[in-house]
């Protein structure tokens, strides 16, 4: 079980998180929605200690720590039980895809190389990159890089994987392959917390949806409840805006497609 209690975090005088509680069971997929600046990403970064929270408790399995006062040893131990997928992929630029995935196993977990390689290859196979073991990040497309990023987290077999807007930096036509991999992982029972703007993913995959705004959880529930029957006005407005944006985007995409066709004909 993973639980965070009462996380608070300020950057200067700006309080980004005003006391957030969150808990999930093994196999759960929690999707966090909300306008930008609402603190979604900060929650994930605090759980992984990339940002030091001002207050709060974190429980992962049998480990419980104070987010503010955790020692560096506790942090190291907790990080080994969580995986993180970054918005900008953040693959190690000087390592191949396979080395990217292996590093956490061989260096952080002192696993023998042969065993690590086997696990890393399996993880890359799982995200459909069997042909790309020895490619450097600069040789891969954005979608492929993000899938390596996911494989890097999956290979560590963590209690939970934190996804920080994993598709936001991708070209629209590459989003599908990454979401596909994430859906497959969810079906295989991987526990995840996902910050995203992909409504279809939230609707289809999430066991629980959280809507955040202004550093607090405004509403949470099953995806059907949130999407079809939101109780709060702020949630309704946000969903409406996102749906409009999605629609506008697909219209632009269609228009672009048409223009391209017209160009080809002429």
């Amino acid at each position: 079980m993973i639980a965070v209690k009462n996380i608070k975090k300020s950057f200067g005088s700006n309080q980004v998180l005003k006391g957030i509680d969150l808990s999930l069971e093994k196999g759960d997929v929690v999707v966090i929605l909300g306008p930008s600046g609402s603190g979604k990403t900060t929650i994930l970064r605090c759980i992984n200690f990339l940002e030091r929270a001002d207050e709060g408790q974190l429980t992962i399995g049998d480990m419980q720590v104070d987010l503010k006062h955790a020692s560096s040893r506790e942090i190291l131990k907790l990080r080994k039980r969580t995986g993180f997928v970054f918005q900008n992929y953040a693959l190690f630029a000087n390592k191949t895809a396979l080395q990217n995935v292996m590093l956490g196993l061989t260096v952080a977990r002192k696993m023998p190389k042969a065993q690590a390689e086997k696990i890393a290859k399996a993880a890359l196979d799982r995200v459909g990159l069997s042909e790309r073991y020895d490619y450097y990040p600069s040789q891969l497309s954005g979608g492929q890089q993000q899938r390596v990023g996911i494989a890097r987290a999956v290979a560590l077999n963590p209690d939970v994987i934190l996804f920080d807007e994993p598709t936001s930096a991708l070209d629209p036509e590459l989003i599908g392959e990454v979401l596909g991999v994430m859906k497959q992982l969810a079906h295989e029972g991987v526990t995840m917390i996902v910050v995203t703007h992909e409504m279809s993913f939230a609707r289809d995959v999430a066991t629980n949806v959280i809507f955040m705004d202004g550093g607090v959880i405004v509403e949470q529930g099953k995806p059907e409840e949130i999407f079809d029957n939101p109780k709060e006005e702020r949630t309704r407005q946000f969903l409406k805006r996102i749906l409009l944006e999605d629609e506008a985007e697909s219209q632009i995409a269609q228009a672009r497609e048409k223009a391209r066709e017209a160009q080809q004909i002429s």
Binding site: L103, G104, L156
Partner: peptide, 27 residues
């Protein structure tokens, strides 16, 4: 060397020394 390189290394469980030796300094 981008900050995200360090963060990624920390997130897979490396300590600061390993992160510097294997990721930041070589780049």
């Amino acid at each position: 060397v981008g900050k995200e390189q360090t963060e990624a290394a920390l997130s897979v469980g490396l300590n600061h020394f390993q992160t510097n030796c294997l990721i930041v300094i070589p780049q």
